[in-house]
């Protein structure tokens, strides 16, 4: 079963081409590595899926249903979650609140169970701003877990993260893979890409130049 499919996605910012006719399919339960230099269009690609930017042309299908006309929050409710390159946590809210925003009505003990999994239970009453970069990333993983998203978009989750937290993040990703989640991962470290991904796409100036 195809989890996510992009057909001919193009996006320009002013005169600059961010994405040029990008198409790919990803099967459910697989992990796609998205590589390429700065400004090659990786983040714009994720933004086009979650509608943080609206593509100029092209179509996005999630589990066979077209979603590119939906507003961002409706797309999120279909079970598409993401982890941002920067600024993904609500810094003036507590760690627990950050999770409760995502869980929407689920009880606190469910949120606490997840906090334990991402090793943040002791921090639950602390403001998210007091967490390290890696812990903030783990908190975002916690949100994806509490929402039980089927498709998870990861925008450089290891960037600027300590070795110890990188190991934790990698084990969380592996756990999500075991649960059958579909993942798109933006990452520069080729060894890590090889370890985690079934499929690789390389972008350059908004076009796909390599598929593995």
């Amino acid at each position: 079963m195809i989890a996510i499919e992009l057909k001919g996605i193009s996006k320009k910012f002013g005169g600059v081409t961010a994405l040029d006719n990008v198409s790919f399919k990803l099967e459910k339960g697989k992990t796609l590595g998205l590589v390429g230099g700065n400004g090659s269009g990786k983040t714009t690609l994720l933004n086009s899926i979650t509608k943080m930017v609206a593509p100029d042309r092209g179509e996005v299908y999630f589990k066979g249903k077209r979603i590119d006309k939906l507003p961002a929050y409706r797309i999120a409710r279909l079970g598409i979650g993401r982890i941002f390159q920067t600024g993904g946590v609500f810094k003036n809210m507590t760690v627990l609140e950050n999770l409760l925003v995502a869980s929407d009505g689920k009880r606190e003990n469910e949120a606490e169970r997840i906090l334990k999994e991402v090793a943040l239970l002791e921090k639950k009453g602390k403001k998210a701003a007091t967490l390290s970069g890696g812990q903030q990333r783990l908190l975002e993983f916690g949100r994806v877990m509490v929402r039980n998203d089927e498709l998870i978009l990861l925008d450089e989750p290891f960037a600027g993260v300590s070795a110890e937290n990188s190991r934790k993040i990698e084990s969380v990703i592996k756990k999500l893979q075991e649960e059958g989640k579909t993942i798109i991962l933006i990452e520069h470290d080729s060894a890590r890409i090889k370890r985690l991904c079934n499929q690789i796409i390389e972008l350059e100036k908004g076009s796909i130049i390599r598929r593995e």
Binding site: T50, M52, P71, A72, Y73, A76, R77, G81, R82, F84, G87, G88, V89, F90, K91, N92, M93, V101, A102, D104, R143, R147
Partner: peptide, 10 residues
């Protein structure tokens, strides 16, 4: 805190 992130959480 951040509208875009809030929207991405539904």
């Amino acid at each position: 805190e951040n509208e875009s992130v809030a929207a991405s959480l539904g």
